[in-house]
Design a protein around this nucleic acid. Structure first.
Lengths: 232, 232
DNA sequence: CCCTTAGTTTGCCCCGGAGCAAACTGCCGT
DNA sequence: ACGGCAGTTTGCTCCGGGGCAAACTAAGGG
């Protein structure tokens, strides 16, 4: 069953392509469904495909030899991921896990060259994605080098809310399930400290949180926390 | 005075190009000299050029609004840097400072498209460079999230020694001047802790260090330090 | 509907490493 | 030759937040 072009029209990766072009792009792709917690690809395995997230949320995780996990990023709908081929890598440097049930498009690596050659905007967009991620990752290094844990957690929560927030009557809520442990793995701390921090914010009326759910009720106050220079 | 093609022949960025091609590449470039501590480009300024380091060493530094500095990386001879254009950025996300007297080639951003179009290997190499840096930066995030300060310093020193080491009769020496403060800014700690750590290693016979100089006398021992799982 | 289990909260203790202060040392410029 | 200064070393103190342990709670499965 052919894929409908409406799936990818409007995505930045394929901006400006006409209907026939979209069909051509889709004809090389395969769509698949991943249940929550299923692995889309696995760290260090040979990269044979690259992916685009149609719906859902994907968590990209690195695991150290010692077994510690670090969340590299969350992928949002419409984003490319697992593009090892664009970086000249033969294996995936991290694992990708569905944070909720997901629908994913995938192309064999062999489609990379043709796609890029035929649709220059596609290549440009992909490389820009990588560039943006490099910036973000470097910003994270800066954060981890210079900020206290509370500020880092605030930044991480704000990022999640900005990228994947859903308005509710209570405030803005992260629209996929996320544990204290997950937030700890994003910020380089422990679930205990995250829990204490969120509890503190809850007392101050900045957030409301429950099991696997975080709602920011006062984004402005949270931004102040994130920016507050630690007492010199 | 035209630049000699031998300057860039043998560089991975221009691998496989013939003599005439190399001349074409060079005809678009300009070479300049930067004294130690001079800025090649400055954080947040408009990116009009991209660069290739012909000789010397360049330090890429990010400064936070609060004035904290973090060293993103050191650029070695033959590497591209300041390639904001490849990432679709209009400003430089960091400053670049000559760690020693340097010679640098620069191209106007306008040369990017033509170079890429005419020499596909050049674009590929550049994007691979960015991909590699993304991997490295993510590895650094993992390190900062999971390792103790001593291990991080060990990793940083090993990286410096591997990338820019010079054999001496004492061991392998970092071949540009580097302060404790610099190492602190690479590892997210303070110069005091770096100093104490290096002193400790010196007592154990792993390194020899003096003002702005670090020599690793026992690389294997240092690798053990870097890998030592912290006492669970 | 109850029981299991995953996720969360909190209290307590302890320590790695930051902050501060002061002394030391070798370079560099005049 | 001699300051002066940038870079380094070291001692001391203090505390943010990690580790451990235990109790609590909601969700989902049988």
């Amino acid at each position: 069953m052919p894929l409908d072009r409406s799936l990818i029209s409007g995505l930045p990766a394929f901006a400006g392509l006409g209907g026939a072009d979209l069909d051509a792009v889709l004809s090389m792709a395969r769509s698949s469904r991943f249940a929550k917690d299923a692995e889309v690809f696995s760290q260090d395995e040979e990269a044979h495909q690259f992916f685009l997230l149609l719906s859902g949320h994907v968590r990209v995780v690195r695991t150290t030899p010692a077994g510690d996990q670090v969340i590299a990023r969350y992928i949002n709908e419409g984003e490319l991921f697992g593009i090892a081929v664009a970086m000249g890598r033969t294996t995936y440097p991290a694992s990708a896990v569905a944070a909720v049930d997901c629908v994913v498009l995938s192309w064999p690596n062999g489609a990379w060259q043709p796609l890029q050659a035929r649709f220059p905007g596609f290549g440009t967009n992909a490389y820009q994605t990588i560039g943006t991620r490099l910036q973000e990752t470097q910003a994270r290094v800066v954060e981890m080098s210079t900020q206290q844990v509370e500020q880092r957690i605030a930044s991480a929560v704000l990022r999640l809310v900005n990228q994947s927030g859903r308005k509710t009557d209570d405030g803005i809520e992260i629209d996929f399930p996320i544990t204290r442990q997950d937030i700890a793995e994003m910020t380089g701390t422990t679930l205990h400290t995250v829990s204490r921090t969120l509890s503190g914010w809850e007392d101050e009326g900045i957030v409301r949180s429950s099991r696997q759910k975080v709602t920011v009720t006062d984004p402005h106050a949270l931004m102040l926390v994130a920016e507050s220079r630690r007492g010199k």
